[in-house]
Design a protein around this nucleic acid. Structure first.
Lengths: 104, 104
DNA sequence: TATATATTTCGATTTATTGCGAAATATATA
DNA sequence: TATATATTTCGCAATAAATCGAAATATATA
């Protein structure tokens, strides 16, 4: 049986359909390279503030993009104190790639 | 060097971000199965009218979706008399799948 | 040439997405 | 407790996308 995609493919593709969101996902591939050192290690991901600083958009806009990525399941948030660290959900991304390859 | 994508990845993903357009691409995978027999063979593709009959949307709306798919390069139109036959651009679809697999 | 068929383009409306600043929430620290 | 930091949520304006019916275009045929 084929792997179920939760959230569904439609949410994922829609989330990927914006260049800023794809760019953020790209940055999260190698945080060490994409971001200046963070107070906390990149283990847990990159905190929203660093992403906002790097992108040329307001904090609330980036927050909305991160929420879209999160709803699609493409990134996972981890809250530590006052920070929220975001990292890629590689498992879902892999499932999505398999799925689109066979469906498209 | 990596294969260039013309039209670019952004147009392609945006075109794929609508369920009706993905559905049309799916139908075009196996026209024999998805459509009742056509006057002309499926060699050249499926004519817009058949696609419109199958979809539950107006002719002008389907025409717009087909134009979007065409702009993205995902389908190729062939005009024969008063008909326009659409077929998948498998070469571009393959390039896109390679590309998204390495980029995402 | 007139009429029928296939498809697109136009104009308008509706709905969805993006973006911002300000206010709200949550946590940390003085 | 007050203040600072991190982030989200709210309210709203601007832009883009989807949809429809009617008109336009192109081809075919009587």
């Amino acid at each position: 049986m084929t792997k179920r995609l939760t959230p569904d493919i439609d949410d994922i593709i829609k989330a990927l359909a914006h260049p800023v969101r794809r760019e953020i996902l790209g940055w999260l591939k190698s945080p060490q390279k994409s971001f200046p050192t963070q107070a906390h290690s990149f283990e847990l991901g990159v905190c929203a503030g660093k992403i906002y600083e790097k992108a040329d958009l307001s904090q609330s806009t980036i927050s909305a993009h991160l929420a879209t990525l999160q709803r699609a399941g493409l990134v996972v948030p981890r809250k530590v104190g006052q920070w929220i660290f975001y990292s890629r959900n590689e498992a879902l991304i892999d499932k999505f790639l398999d799925r689109i390859k066979s469906d498209l």
